[in-house]
């Protein structure tokens, strides 16, 4: 049991990295990766929201949608629940722990439209994960996202100081770095799991 959970974490975080092999959450991956510190905060917010939303989505699916045979409504239900959840988490943090709110606050609304969150909820249902597995998969995916965005931010801080050929300045060189990172992450695919 424990082994299979570790397997899920390794698979979701490294082998099937959400950004570099699934292409989810590209917008924020390219947008908020200018410096390491903000990307760490965003990563923290994503871990927080994705873990909770995977849990909530799984409970909703198991106890509401599946018994009522409304599985085809899962896209609508999940996106609304995630949007509401993010709002609630935001209000809750603002009231209960201003410290965390200050660190994560402005990134929380971003996450509503982050397709990775909805993507994980839907993938968990497709893979038939139970409650614990869903939460672990959500957490692992978010960790993978954080790893990728922080690494890219580190690379970009260096790129800023080097001279890039003019047509490649801005987005192209970032995409090229992402491409090289994706090649590196393909190496995890050969892990004997």
């Amino acid at each position: 049991m424990n082994n299979s959970l570790i397997l899920i974490i390794v698979t979701t975080a490294l082998v099937n990295n959400v950004v570099l092999s699934q292409f989810l959450g590209i917008c924020s991956f390219l947008g908020v990766s200018k410096q390491i510190k903000p990307s760490l905060s965003l990563g923290g917010a994503v871990i927080f929201v994705m873990t909770i939303s995977s849990a909530v989505a799984n409970l909703l699916y198991t106890f509401l949608l599946a018994p009522l045979h409304l599985e085809y409504l899962n896209t609508i239900v999940f996106i609304l629940v995630i949007a509401t959840l993010v709002q609630m988490v935001e209000m809750f943090l603002k009231k209960m722990s201003p410290g965390i709110y200050k660190a994560l606050g402005i990134y929380l609304p971003l996450i509503t439209t982050n397709c990775a969150v909805l993507g994980v909820a839907l993938t968990n249902v497709q893979d038939g994960y139970g409650f614990v597995e869903s939460v672990v998969a959500g957490f692992g995916t978010a960790v993978g996202y954080t790893i990728a965005i922080v690494l890219l931010a580190g690379i970009r801080e260096r790129i800023d100081e080097s001279s890039v050929p003019k047509p490649f300045r801005g987005a192209p060189v970032v995409l090229l770095s992402a491409a090289l990172m994706a090649i590196a992450f393909m190496g995890f695919g050969s892990l004997a799991l």
Partner: peptide, 27 residues
């Protein structure tokens, strides 16, 4: 995508890719 945007840049066709965007990155 990198090559495509670089070509557009080289041809000086302005894209949103090089606008200064923060936060949501205009997602």
């Amino acid at each position: 995508m990198a090559i495509l945007i670089a070509i557009l840049n080289g041809a000086s066709i302005s894209t949103r890719a090089n606008d200064k965007v923060e936060g949501c990155d205009g997602c």
